[in-house]
């Protein structure tokens, strides 16, 4: 890289990083509380992860190993671009392997592989305010958080049950953090909600357009809201992953042809490839060995340049 010198390390200037780190520290000190911060213009449009990128840029160091996923996949546009961005501006090692990453920036999934202490999960958040669609006034929602007035959140769940016979919210499912703040877990499927509870990893949430940062320190209690007679449930799938036969993972529906044929495959591509590498085979997996096809053998790591 010849143009590396034209950027400060990790793109943001040091004053901005300090400002964001202060917001992050405050967020960690008050789990689930949305801390306002002076979000910067980033070289990407709002909605593409400007909040997550700023958080990552503020915490990343030269020794970090970065993984970026978009809806669970390491190989989609958003993930590839952000990974390339940090290789360019921070010259850090990047990986697709969940276990060997120290920072994982994610858009709307939590990896299937359990996170460990010392890892940081950075969420890209479009709308940080869980009450936004129930109460449009920011002044009022902040007051509701301050006074812990969360009856309205249950009104939404009530409406779900009244209309659909069950809680139909499947993503961005509201949670209560340490018995205090109601928080939007970003649009992750509710399948991932239990993984946030008492996670050994640090979880940081960045919303660039809305200029908010919030956080879950390791081992924080995160409870999904529900009713006594309609308890919280995660999605279940009738069949295992068509490629790696994994059960109890979150699956994506993939359309195969113009006749409506479809298959369900792991949304977490790294997890799926690892399992296939270990010899697991789903009913639609190719008969031949996948070795030449997979671009990431287990533990694949692209070194720093």
């Amino acid at each position: 890289m010849t143009d590396i010198a034209t950027y400060n390390f990790a793109y943001l200037d040091e004053q901005t990083k300090r400002m964001i780190r202060r917001a992050i520290l405050k967020g960690i000190a008050i789990p689930g509380y949305q801390v306002p911060f002076a979000s910067r213009e980033m070289p990407m449009p709002y909605g593409w992860g400007t909040g997550g990128v700023q958080v990552t840029a503020s915490i990343i160091g030269p020794d970090d190993v970065l993984k970026v996923i978009d809806q669970g996949a390491d190989d989609t546009t958003n993930a590839v671009s952000i990974r390339a961005f940090f290789r360019k501006v921070a010259n850090v090692a990047v990986t697709t392997d969940t276990a060997s990453a120290t920072i994982i920036q994610t858009r709307h999934r939590i990896p299937e592989h359990p996170l460990a202490a010392g890892q940081v999960l950075v969420y890209q958040v479009p709308i940080p305010e869980p009450l936004r669609f129930l109460e449009p006034r920011e002044t009022e929602t902040r007051k509701m958080h301050a006074l812990e007035e969360y009856g309205l959140m249950h009104v939404k769940l009530y409406e779900d049950i009244a209309r659909h016979g069950r809680i139909a919210t499947t993503y961005a499912y509201p949670v209560k953090v340490e018995g205090r703040y109601v928080m939007d877990p970003s649009p992750t499927p509710k399948f991932d909600n239990p993984k946030m509870n008492h996670s050994p990893a640090l979880q940081l949430f960045g919303a660039g357009r809305e200029k908010r940062i919030y956080a879950l320190p390791p081992f924080t209690e995160v409870v999904s809201l529900d009713f006594e007679d309609h308890p919280f449930e995660v999605q279940t799938f009738d069949q295992p992953c068509a490629l790696c036969a994994a059960k109890n993972v979150y699956l994506d529906e993939v359309i195969l042809d113009d006749h409506g044929d479809h298959m369900f495959v792991c949304s977490d591509t790294d997890y799926c490839e690892k399992r296939r590498g270990d010899g697991h085979r789903g009913h639609l997996a190719p008969e031949t060995d996948l070795a030449p096809e997979t671009h990431s053998a287990p533990g694949n790591m692209e070194p720093a340049q």
Binding site: E149, Y150, G151, L152, H154, V155, Y158, I161, D226, F227, E228, D229, H230
Partner: peptide, 14 residues
């Protein structure tokens, strides 16, 4: 009608 009940902590839909 139910909002006030939920606001004071009622958590049983039925």
């Amino acid at each position: 009608v139910g909002e006030r009940l939920m606001a004071v902590g009622d958590r049983h839909y039925g």
